[in-house]
Design a protein around this nucleic acid. Structure first.
Lengths: 336, 336
DNA sequence: TTGTAGGCGTTATCAT
DNA sequence: ATGATAACGCCTACAA
């Protein structure tokens, strides 16, 4: 293996000078720099990142823990975060938590191994009871739900507000029997609970009665379960003319399930999702949704993290919280 | 920061003994082990991965370079690879190459920085001309296309065979004017060229004439361009009753474009894609596709890489190639 | 502008 | 079964 020493010898300088050249330090005579660069090129020298990490105490990599990278929402989020992180000269390693509390705790533990300079954790399973576990002395940013006033920075979605807007949109389009396909509620502040709240509020505002038969709960936020839930709703005979789905992925499944049941969207039933994933613009019919501005969320999350990583010692700022704004995207599935 | 030294002191042993305990070496008296573990727990000690990497020369992380992680195909591939890699106690860091030759070369350079123990590179832009650039002395596995007899291991898709089967399927379902939405052809052996070949072969086999007006080329394999290409085909007046799309993502866009053009699938036009991404099962109509067995490909790629990583010095095996088998999944879009 | 010394935290090797 | 020693390759601090 070629080391800095070898390069130094070949270039007739000290190892330090080579280091200076590598790290673009200003005080190197350009002639010396040339000589060193030539030696680097000839020997095909590569810095040993492990050695640099050990010496500097940083790795240049941040972790991104998401439930499952193959869900469109997280893929699109990851793409954004990787792009933004690259602008800060940071690499991104992806961990899959499997949408479980255990997986999320495992991701936290990894960053404590100092494998990453910081961690962006997209939580689903952690709740207020886990506040203490987040009290780690490594930079962590929570992304996704508005969990609670935890000890760490937090980039949140406008869950209940967005859900309320989505449900109201259905009502404005003439729906009077609005169903909900909702995810697992594991606490008071997870994504499903918050969006459920927004749904309920919108019904109240519109003066529409809440009918429990119009709520179809699912265990996982997948297309498969979205389709199954839609078929259940269609088969239950409850009669409904609109559905708010807890996520777009679920909604795309629901579109499929409604088609299976012979219901036409938007003619018989109007459908709206949440997240505005790219696929929603291309489904048939195209999917109305709540757009929480992913790019802004990704940029803010990385920004928070970078700021934390720059903090020296105990000069800690108080935890920050950012709630993304949102907009409603009306497409064919609500008759738009 | 708590180091092995601190633990050693607290437990009244030498640092080496702590190391032995951490690494599960056999010759440690269980009483000693207990004492050390207790000290580790009390001090909340975490191994310093950078130091370990420097000492062992390995990082425990492999790189996965894909064009864009937010394309469903690559998201699903990444999820598989992360799962398999975890079984080998390997983490996966994801690089996005932007589907460009430069991006792919950059990913190669990173692994040469010894950031990763190995690299799985999903190529789109590299071609036969780049053979020399792949001649690196770090474990690399090429994944995706059947590029060429390069100097590295290669897990390939059955591109032309699959494309032939897809096109044949359309013919068998009664199509006589089969269109192709094809991606950018940048050489003789990229994914678009190979699938184009399969399309042509199937037409020949069926005794159908090749009509260049039925080929709609696109620059990027996105839903957007798939939709645009379908609209172009519909507007050109060439008359077609089937479309083979170079990927499922493109096909889902095409379904949208056909709907925009007032063409019904499968009644007026039948559609088939390639990749069998999860979304295809839930589109309306559901999408027929070629399924190349992602899990097998992912498992094989990681297997190849792990084997390479275990090779000592110059005892190199010859490059291996694996071409995944495939199956055809007939769904609604071809009248299934 | 360039060089010297020292150590980051861990583990391989070789003793005992 | 446990430990002493010596690196791994780099960079911070200081010196020249």
């Amino acid at each position: 293996m070629v080391t800095i020493q070898d390069v130094a010898k070949a270039a007739g300088v000290s190892p330090m000078t080579v280091s200076h050249v590598i790290n673009d330090h200003p005080h190197v005579k350009s002639e010396t720099r040339e000589r060193v660069l030539r030696a680097i090129d000839e020997l095909d020298y590569r810095v040993n990142v492990a050695a640099r990490n050990l010496r500097t105490g940083r790795t240049g990599t941040i972790g991104l823990a998401v439930p499952e990278i193959d869900r469109p929402y997280y893929g699109q989020l990851a793409a954004e975060i990787i792009k933004v992180a690259a602008g800060h000269h940071l690499r991104v390693a992806i961990e899959q938590t499997g949408a479980s509390r255990e997986g999320e705790l495992a991701a936290l533990a990894l960053s404590r191994n100092r494998l990453y300079d910081g961690l962006i954790l997209s939580t689903v399973g952690l709740g207020p009871a886990d506040t203490d576990l987040l009290r780690v002395d490594h930079p962590v940013v929570i992304l996704g739900e508005r969990i609670f006033d935890g000890p760490v920075d937090h980039v949140a979605m406008p869950n209940s507000e967005g859900a309320r807007a989505a449900t109201r949109h259905l009502v404005e389009r003439g729906c009077r029997r609005v169903a909900l396909i909702d995810g697992p509620q594991r606490g008071e502040v997870d994504v499903s609970s918050l969006r459920y709240d927004g749904y309920r509020e919108a019904l109240d505002e519109a003066g529409l009665p809440f009918d429990p038969r119009l709520v179809a709960p699912i265990e996982q936020l997948t297309m498969e379960q979205g389709a199954a839930a839609a078929r259940r709703l269609a088969g239950s005979g409850g009669g409904f003319d609109g559905v708010f789905c807890v996520t777009d992925t679920v909604a795309i499944g629901a579109l499929r399930g409604l088609a299976d049941s012979g219901l036409r969207v938007p003619h018989d039933v109007k459908v709206i999702g949440f997240d505005n994933i790219a696929e929603g613009a291309y489904s048939v019919p195209s999917l109305s949704s709540i757009d929480p501005d992913h790019a802004l969320m990704a940029g803010t999350a990385v920004g928070f993290l970078v700021k934390r990583m720059a903090e020296k010692g105990r000069a800690r700022q108080a935890p920050r919280e950012f709630v993304s704004p949102f907009s409603l995207v009306a497409r064919e599935s609500t008759g738009g």
